[in-house]
């Protein structure tokens, strides 16, 4: 039986692979919005077995608003301000990144199978596979791209992955809305601050290429 949460996980993996392949900043931002919404929905659908309570649903709406609308909106504005829309000459090429993504999936399956989590159901294991892949792909984006905006997107993707790992492992966190709200607030402010810095980098260097910044070294 194909559970609906498995479809969501497949969609997340698809968005991860697409973002590793994509060379347009605007397309990346849209992918992040999509990924944000799907990631927010995962805890909701995993908990359906126990029945969805009102708080969980309200929190889902908040998550979608922040991860799917607010943060991509901030990124959208940042991309609009920046003149260039393409990632030129990435440090690791697109095909190589895509290949790295595929290897990451294999690696995550291997790791998950060796963790000996007897108490986990199949869909929880799949969730863990997706989560580790998403986190790893975020790190790949962070290291393999030179544009500051793509690096922010890499950070967001990594954060999504860690959030999913939290969903799989630390269920108790998701019942403490104050804490989760605070984490979400941090994430939003982080993207806001990064957006401001990206904008200033663009003003000062006429580009958002981090390779241009190499003044400080020993």
């Amino acid at each position: 039986m194909i559970h609906i949460s498995n479809i969501l996980l497949a969609l997340i993996l698809l968005s991860v692979l697409l973002s590793l392949r994509s060379n347009r900043l605007m397309a990346l931002v849209k992918l992040m919005a999509f990924q944000g919404i799907v990631v927010s929905a995962v805890p909701l659908l995993l908990e359906t077995a126990h029945g969805v309570n009102f708080n969980l649903f309200m929190f889902f709406l908040l998550l979608v608003a922040v991860k799917g609308v607010l943060i991509p909106g901030l990124m959208y504005r940042a991309v609009k301000w920046v003149v260039v829309d393409r990632e030129v000459e990435p440090i690791i090429g697109y095909h190589a990144s895509l290949f790295a993504g595929l290897i990451l999936i294999v690696f995550s399956v291997y790791v998950t199978n060796h963790l000996q989590l007897a108490m986990f159901s199949e869909s929880h294991k799949l969730l863990l596979v997706t989560a580790i892949t998403t986190m790893g792909a975020g790190l790949v984006l962070l290291m393999a791209r030179r544009k500051a905006i793509t690096q922010v997107i890499g950070y967001l993707m990594m954060e999504n992955g860690i959030y999913l790992i939290g969903t799989a492992l630390a269920k108790q966190v998701h019942t403490q809305y104050v804490v989760e709200f605070a984490v979400l607030l941090d994430l939003t402010v982080a993207v806001l601050v990064m957006g401001i810095v990206v904008n200033d980098i663009n003003h000062t260097f006429d580009d958002v290429d981090t390779a241009l910044m190499g003044q400080l070294k020993d």
């Binding site: 962070l142 950070y155 790992i165 939290g166 980098i201 910044m213």
Partner: peptide, 27 residues
Amino acid sequence: KESLEATWKYVLICSVGIALALLGCFF
């Protein structure tokens, strides 16, 4: 230019590092 570079490194390296600490908390 220098302070922008320093800020960018600071925010990005520390945010990514601290994100790993969140993973540690979940563990």
